[in-house]
């Protein structure tokens, strides 16, 4: 995945069954963001692989004050890339979801 400066990782072991997974997001390289970033640490959240849209979660992070509007796209892309990888791994390992 492209290095967006925003890192998203699993915050729990993926058993391949749950549709909702715990993720952790943090800024690895603030220089890659367009807006000024206030260092708040890592953000833990849950994401429904079947029903949620990464860009919507990114927008909620903007509305909660973690990021500026101009960085919503880059945050959304970072989440989308990680979600795609998780789904790909599940397909590869033959998980039901």
């Amino acid at each position: 995945a492209e290095d967006t400066g925003v890192r998203v990782e699993l915050n729990e072991e993926d058993d391949g069954k749950k549709s909702t997974i715990a993720l952790k997001l943090w800024v690895e390289d603030a220089k890659k963001l367009k807006g000024k970033y206030k260092d708040t640490g890592a953000i833990e959240f849950t994401f429904d692989l079947q029903n949620e849209v990464p860009e919507v979660v990114a927008q909620e992070m903007v509305e909660s004050g973690f990021f500026l509007e101009c960085d919503a796209k880059i945050v959304g892309k970072s989440i989308r890339d990680r979600v795609a990888l998780i789904k790909w791994r599940r397909v590869r390992t033959g998980s039901p979801n």
Binding site: E28, G41, A42, I43, F45, V57, E60, M61, G65
Partner: peptide, 27 residues
């Protein structure tokens, strides 16, 4: 505790925690 909880109006819960050790790029 170093964690803080932010609940978005849509109901999503964000928990702020320290960045995992060694996971920040060197400036």
């Amino acid at each position: 505790s170093a964690t803080a909880q932010v609940v978005h109006s849509a109901g999503r819960r964000f928990i702020v925690s320290p960045v995992p050790e060694g996971r920040l790029k060197e400036p």
